[in-house]
């Protein structure tokens, strides 16, 4: 089995890239691979535990009916497989005040990303636009 390292930059709810990246990670996990994720800049907000569902007044749906997508729950699900490591860039977290993460995410630095990339089968950098 291989190890993939993926760098992400987009914050939640701004780009399709977020769900695409999580789909790729999910596919890699299902295939038995290990995935390391380095969240840089706005992507550190993906792990914020306080993300909450809301109703949709246009559709007239309640919170339960809307069953809103919560990116941090998707991340938590991936981390729960124990095949995903997740590091948030610490300086990026500090400047955004984006603490209180889902279990399994940890603080790190670009040097961690470099080390992971050197140890991985491949590295995919997904920048923001």
């Amino acid at each position: 089995m291989a190890t993939l390292t993926i760098a992400l930059m987009d914050p939640p709810y701004e780009a399709e890239t977020t769900t695409t990246a999580l789909r790729i990670i999910d596919a890699a996990v299902r295939k038995g691979h290990q995935v390391n994720v380095f969240a840089y800049e706005g992507a550190v907000n993906l792990t914020m535990k306080d993300q909450a569902a809301h109703p949709n007044p246009v559709k007239g749906t309640t919170v339960e009916e809307e069953d809103h997508v919560i990116p941090s729950k998707l991340v938590a699900g991936l981390l729960g497989t124990e095949q995903v490591e997740w590091i948030n860039c610490g300086l990026c977290v500090d400047e955004r005040g984006s603490g209180n993460w889902v279990d399994g995410a940890r603080r790190g630095a670009p040097a961690d990303f470099l080390k992971w990339s050197q140890e991985s089968t491949n590295t995919l950098v997904i920048g923001t636009k």
């Binding site: 993939l4 790729i24 596919a27 890699a28 295939k31 691979h33 089968t121 491949n122 920048g127």
Partner: peptide
Amino acid sequence: SNVDNLVDLLVQEGTKAVW
């Protein structure tokens, strides 16, 4: 294709992946 196939391509040793 699909993301499963994308992963197969990504994990091939020596592939240069550019997003």
